[in-house]
Design a protein around this nucleic acid. Structure first.
Lengths: 247, 247
DNA sequence: ATGAATCTGACAGGTTGATTACAAATCTGT
DNA sequence: ACAGATTTGTAATCAACCTGTCAGATTCAT
């Protein structure tokens, strides 16, 4: 168990200069799924609210200003479409990501016609959800969210899936890419191994493995090795951080 | 912080010194879809009129002058093509965006032949519609030119449903065509298999199929095989991308 | 100095994607 | 509606190369 409390404090204290916080409303009655989503998205750097049923969801949607709503179709009380309809009638324009069950193909079409922007069939991989969420948020804020993350002379183009440092192209594997993306999105923050694990891997920290250390090393070899200024730093006992030193 | 950003967005949306307001005519009989389109486009800064059937659409198109028409194919009374034909006979030259059902491939061809400028398959994500709308409004009604997608010496003619590479005609099947269209519309972007699956197939990726791999291979055989410069590239662990390398 | 934390290099199993063949589904002309 | 042709999906095989593990070296804080 790594110093969880301290980490939260660090996260709270640190505000990204260039990436504004995005607020996401999750409407999901099943506790497990709901908590899972909330935690995962929070760790990914989003601010989330969780509504446990349709009515609560609708209410929250109207009250707060969200950048995205994640909406389960099967809900007690108001179902997903009804919530969506209520939201749209209320003149609220946020993008909506529908979660539907495997056999409810029709529902999917219905949802899209009613103005959902994307859908995902349960069960889904968290990484998949995250990708959709980012895509929707990006489109909603066309100019706000850049598709290129930067730190010093390092650039990561998310759409083209390419990394460059000092104008030199760098080939990254999938894991390396995901890891670097996380570092860049939360640069300046010290990321504990448990957080890295939950975001880049699907595991809940199998304490005694050094996959992360090895992955960070491999990334370093490609990113930092031939450069005077190092970007990825080890914070002993806490985790890793990507930052432009002298900052 | 959030508040500040929102304000800027609103101001941006409201005061456009260099962009005059664009008028869009929506012809859609299904009330929910119609309302949703109208609302969404209005909030995106367009001025919209909504016609509930073909006759009304035709009448409005002739009366007011619009910068774009969004036209559903399935309409009671006059259908989409008939409306389009009437509009063109009336000597009205605005760009037209067609909304068609997924499997009605013929419809799309017909629509394009009759002088539509682009089409979108229902159900679609609103963001996608918005992108097409903006593209059309910016470009204006360009007829033939607008229906050809290009990358290096590869051309895809949406109207004639024909592909050419280096001046040589290439016969494509329906799936191949749809796949290549997606690649060309989003060239430079690495498309994950899940994205391709949802766009070209009507499925949500049950990872235990390699349809996409096979389809890409078949497309490659026709597009890239005999050419020095490859256009479709594999990005291991991430997906496929069409791009002119060295770009 | 000492123990814990982290780095390093090598290796092997596993995953990914290319390729091929074949079966199922769809289209076509009669 | 039927038979043949074409298109499309499935499955098996193979090669390339990721990626997790591990053991030993190294660094760091006390």
């Amino acid at each position: 168990m790594r110093a969880a409390i301290r980490c939260e404090l660090w996260q709270d204290a640190c505000i990204h200069p260039d990436v504004p916080t995005m607020k996401i409303l999750i409407v999901e009655d099943e506790p497990k799924t709901g908590d899972y989503l909330k935690q995962g998205l929070t760790e990914a750097g989003f601010v989330t609210d969780l509504a446990r049923d349709g009515w609560e969801g609708l209410e929250l949607a109207k009250a707060g200003h969200y950048d995205l709503m994640i909406l389960d179709v099967m809900l007690p009380g108001l179902n997903g479409w009804q919530v969506l309809e209520g939201v749209r009638r209320g003149g609220i324009e946020m993008p909506v990501l529908f979660l539907t069950a495997r056999d409810q193909v029709e529902d999917r079409v219905k949802g899209l016609e009613l103005g959902a922007d994307d859908y995902l069939v349960k069960p889904f991989a968290f990484a998949e959800l995250l990708a959709r969420v980012r895509s929707l948020v990006r489109r909603g804020h066309a100019s706000l969210e850049s598709t290129v993350l930067k730190a010093a002379d390092l650039e990561l183009d998310l759409l083209r899936r390419r990394a460059m440092r000092a104008g030199h192209k760098i080939e990254l594997t999938a894991k390396e890419f995901a890891l670097l993306e996380l570092f860049l999105r939360r640069q300046g923050e010290v990321l504990p191994r448990s957080l890295i694990a939950s975001q880049v891997w699907d595991m809940n920290f199998d304490s005694d493995t050094n996959v992360i250390d090895v992955a960070v090393r491999r990334l370093r070899l490609k990113i930092d090795n031939e450069h005077e200024i190092k970007l990825i730093h080890t914070v002993r006992g806490m985790g890793y951080v990507l930052e432009v030193s002298g900052q």
